[in-house]
C-alpha cells in the first residue's frame, strides 16, 4: 500500500466519495459537491469566454488588425453586446438580434451540413450491388446477403418512422421488418451504453485504488 500524501489527491478522493454517497441516499455531501460543480462550471465558461474568444478575437483583433478587418469587428462586437443585454430587462429585447443571428447561422449550417455531409453520402452508400462476387460461392452468398440486408434494413427503418401514411397493408409489413432491425440496433446501443457507463466507474475506482490508496 502506497497511500498518497498529496493533499490535493485527498481533496479529489473526498469529493469522489461525496458524490458516490448519493448511491446510499441523497445527502448534504452530494448536494454540496453537485453545487460546487455547477458553480465552478459557470465560472469556467466565463474564463473560457475571455481567454479563447473575447481576448483573441475581439480585443487582439481591434489592437492588431488594420483597415476594414479592424472596423468590421464592430458588427460582431455589437451583436455580442446585444447578447449581454438579455441580463438588463428593459432592453432585453435587443438580445433577440444576436440570438436571431446565431439561430440563422445554426439553421443555415444545419441544412447544408446535413444535406451535403449526411443525406447525400449516406443515401449514395445505400446504393449497393445486391450480388457481390466473392472468392468462393459461400463468400459470394455471404457478401451479397450482407448488402441485401443493409438495403432492406435502411429502407424499412425509414418506412417505420414514416408517420404521414397509416401503417396498413404493405407499409405495415415493411415497417414490421423495420422494427426488427431497429430492435437489433437498440440492443446493440444498449450493450454499448452499458459498456460506456461501466468504463466511467472503472475510471473512478481506479483513481481511488491507484492515485489515492496506492493499492494498485
Amino acid at each position: 500500500m502506497n497511500i498518497s500524501f498529496n493533499p490535493w489527491v485527498w481533496v479529489a478522493a473526498f469529493l469522489t466519495l461525496s458524490m458516490m454517497s448519493f448511491l446510499y441516499k441523497d445527502n448534504i455531501f452530494y448536494k454540496i459537491g453537485e453545487h460546487i460543480y455547477v458553480g465552478s462550471s459557470a465560472a469556467f465558461m466565463l474564463i473560457y469566454l475571455w481567454y479563447f474568444d473575447v481576448k483573441p478575437k475581439l480585443v487582439d483583433g481591434f489592437m492588431y488588425n488594420t483597415g476594414i478587418n479592424k472596423w468590421i469587428l464592430i458588427i460582431p462586437a455589437l451583436l455580442s453586446l446585444f447578447m449581454l443585454m438579455r441580463f438588463i430587462r428593459p432592453v432585453a429585447w435587443i438580445s433577440r438580434w444576436a440570438i436571431a443571428f446565431t439561430v440563422g447561422m445554426g439553421s443555415g449550417l444545419g441544412i447544408t451540413g446535413l444535406l451535403q455531409g449526411f443525406l447525400v453520402p449516406q443515401i449514395k452508400a445505400t446504393f449497393l450491388p445486391l450480388y457481390v462476387h466473392g472468392s468462393n460461392t459461400l463468400m459470394s452468398i455471404y457478401l451479397s446477403l450482407n448488402n441485401i440486408l443493409m438495403v432492406i434494413g435502411t429502407l424499412s427503418a425509414i418506412v417505420y418512422f414514416y408517420f404521414s401514411k397509416e401503417h396498413t397493408g404493405p407499409v405495415k409489413k415493411i415497417s414490421q421488418v423495420g422494427i426488427t432491425f431497429i430492435m437489433v440496433a437498440f440492443g446493440a446501443s444498449f450493450g454499448y451504453t452499458v459498456m460506456a457507463r461501466i468504463s466511467l466507474l472503472i475510471g473512478r475506482v481506479y483513481f481511488l485504488l491507484h492515485n489515492w490508496l496506492g493499492l494498485v
Binding site: W8, V9, V11, A12, A13, L15, T16, M19, M20, F22, L23, G33, E34, I36, Y37, S40, S41, F44, T193, V194, R197, I198, L200, L201, G203, R204, F207
Partner: peptide, 19 residues
Amino acid sequence: TYVFVPLQATMFSLLAFFI
C-alpha cells in the same frame, strides 16, 4: 485536476450503478 474533474467524472460514473 483535483476539484473539477473528480466532481464531474464521479457524477457521471453513478450512471453505471443506475443502468
